[in-house]
Amino acid sequence: MTTRLSDNPTTRLSDHRWGMAIDLDKCTGCQACVVSCHAENNVPIVGEEEAAYGRTAHWLRIERYWEGEYPNVKAKFMPVMCQQCTEAPCEAVCPVYATYHSDEGLNGQIYNRCIGTRFCGSACPYKQRMYNWFDPVFPEPLEQQLNPDVTVRSRGIMEKCTFCVQRIRRVKEDAKAEGREVTDGEIQPACAQSCPTNAIVFGDLNDPESRVSQMARSSRAFRLLENLGTEPGVVYLKGGETRV
């Protein structure tokens, strides 16, 4: 049993537990979330050759499942990003505490602490951690749209989905400046914002009335590789069938 910072009684526990719900019935596999994630988080492009070595760089991928034989083919899509596990296997193996658990349920990744052992990548059962094998490249004109709120990770650094922590931070600061609480739906990670079918919903799982909490209570709700006991912060709603 490891002791987490959030177990420390001297630290205040947060009011929030950020979580995400993804309705697989609504996902059409359009990959708008993948593109917007790249744009928001300065995720580099590795190119065809590196991708062939399995060095693809995405914080969010669409898993695609084909079922049946032509012409009766069914396609199923599933967006998979860092599951922000409550009992995260990646956190326990980091020798320098570059990845840790925040009391708001975020699995933080601190780039300037990371020394690139890649232990976390090996430990992650969702294969959602990405290692920078080379210095990042942003071919023209992509360098024009780099997000100033996110570091460009250099070679030798592990990175992953952060639930767009920069957007969470911004909304919380704005709400505090206006002397109010963060309202449900105010924080939108790039993937949720760009989803044309609103399949991805982000919010506070500690608030029983939030949309994400309501979705998490659905009878269709399940978590990815639930039997591992990682207690992910991402809830999927079981999809039916999408015919193509």
Binding site: L5, T11, R12, Y100, S102, D103, E104, L106, G108, I110, Y111, N112, R113, D149, V150, T151, T162, V165, Q166, R169
Partner: peptide, 16 residues
């Protein structure tokens, strides 16, 4: 006072 300013043990408050 922690009610006014967080004690900053949460890394993602300042690291991006």
């Amino acid at each position: 006072d922690e009610a006014i300013a967080p004690h900053l043990w949460d890394c993602v408050v300042c690291h991006q």
